[in-house]
Amino acid sequence: MTTIQDVLRGNLSYEDGLDALTVAPAQETDAALRSAVAEGVDRLVRGGWQPAELHRVVARLGDPVQAQLMAEAAKAYIPRFPDIDLRWRAQAEELPAGRNKADRVRALDAGLSLLLELRKLPTIEKLIPAPGDMPEKRLHGAENRVLERVRALLAKAESTDFPAEAEAFSAKAQELIARHSIEEVLSATPGEAPLARRLGVDHPYESEKASLLDAVARANHCHTVWSPELAFSTVFGFDTDIDAVELLYTSLLVQANRAMARDEPAKGKTRIKAFRRSFLVAYAVRIGERFERATRHEIEQHSDLLPVLRGRDLQVREAVTRAFPRTVRARGSRVDSLEGWESGRAAADEAKLA
């Protein structure tokens, strides 16, 4: 429909375009809007975007109807292609099902504004094959079994109310991750290259969460680049190390949120906000300190691996430079609440480093 294209090209104002769509035949208009959204999503998918990333960046806009349209467009890929990379398929299938029943005018408004937002998103690096590309067959059953056992142990550590039980679960998970990582280094295939994976960093307090992710990554021989405008950090490293980073970061964030809710002040919106931000800053700093100590201990136990680890770190840094030749150091967050800082450090000391 020319009305939609005129709005997207700037030849027609948004308000006039929406008015024109509202009075046009519903069947024709709805079909044209669905087609335009599908084309916009397809362009971004070919441009490196993954389903979870697109849904997250759209959901941040705050309109649940837009998020629902985005999820529906991603899910529509699944029956179109007989062979889709398992990671891409899993992301699309896990997007929330539509529950919003908007009236037609609101649906038209959401769809048209979504198209304008999608046009603003840039092309990014393609990290997993898109539908229609050749899927990668790189995941192995033994590796999956280890990771599933770690996930199960972390879930139990996060859900139990008994500290001793949580410690036992987390200690076992840590043991599995460390053992698996060392085995991967010893059995690494010559010429193996580092990879990259994008992990979502959701608001609020994105800067503080990105700092926590960076602390976890550095302790696991990885490096991160945070893209705040796109709601993710890119983690560079070898596959097993990135798996460990993702699992640990998710678990520590769950533990941080639980402790923060437990310790935060009872009232005062400004006070609570300062407390939470200061809590997360302190939590990330203290977790980094604990991880640095643990990493030094691990290296001392396997000093023969030091040259290999240095070589792998150099490869990871080179991969970061190739993907992001121009980066800037993020400004540190302010600490406005001593109460939040002290509570965050105490929570980090309690946290189970799985």
Rank of each mutant, 00 (worst) to 15 (best):
4 I>L: 12
8 L>K: 01
8 L>C: 09
12 L>W: 12
13 S>V: 12
18 L>N: 01
21 L>V: 02
23 V>D: 09
26 A>G: 01
29 T>G: 07
35 S>P: 02
39 E>T: 13
40 G>P: 05
49 W>Q: 05
51 P>V: 07
51 P>Y: 05
54 L>F: 05
55 H>D: 00
56 R>H: 11
59 A>R: 08
62 G>M: 00
67 A>T: 00
68 Q>A: 03
77 Y>D: 03
77 Y>C: 07
90 A>K: 06
96 P>N: 04
107 A>T: 02
108 L>C: 06
110 A>F: 00
112 L>R: 01
113 S>M: 01
115 L>K: 01
119 R>L: 13
120 K>Q: 13
120 K>I: 08
122 P>M: 10
124 I>K: 13
125 E>H: 12
126 K>T: 11
127 L>A: 08
129 P>D: 11
130 A>T: 04
131 P>T: 03
132 G>E: 11
151 R>D: 07
152 A>Y: 11
171 A>V: 01
174 Q>W: 15
175 E>F: 15
178 A>Y: 10
179 R>N: 08
180 H>Y: 14
188 A>R: 14
191 G>W: 10
194 P>R: 04
206 E>R: 15
208 E>Y: 04
214 D>I: 05
218 R>C: 10
218 R>G: 11
222 C>F: 13
222 C>Y: 13
223 H>K: 12
227 S>P: 00
228 P>G: 01
231 A>E: 10
235 V>K: 00
236 F>H: 15
251 S>A: 08
262 R>M: 07
268 G>L: 04
271 R>D: 07
271 R>G: 11
272 I>A: 02
276 R>L: 02
282 A>P: 10
283 Y>P: 03
286 R>C: 05
288 G>S: 04
289 E>W: 08
290 R>W: 02
291 F>G: 14
296 R>V: 07
297 H>L: 10
298 E>K: 10
310 R>F: 03
310 R>N: 08
318 E>W: 07
327 T>C: 12
330 A>D: 10
331 R>G: 03
332 G>R: 14
333 S>H: 10
336 D>Q: 09
336 D>K: 02
337 S>F: 06
340 G>E: 06
343 S>E: 11
349 D>M: 10
350 E>K: 14
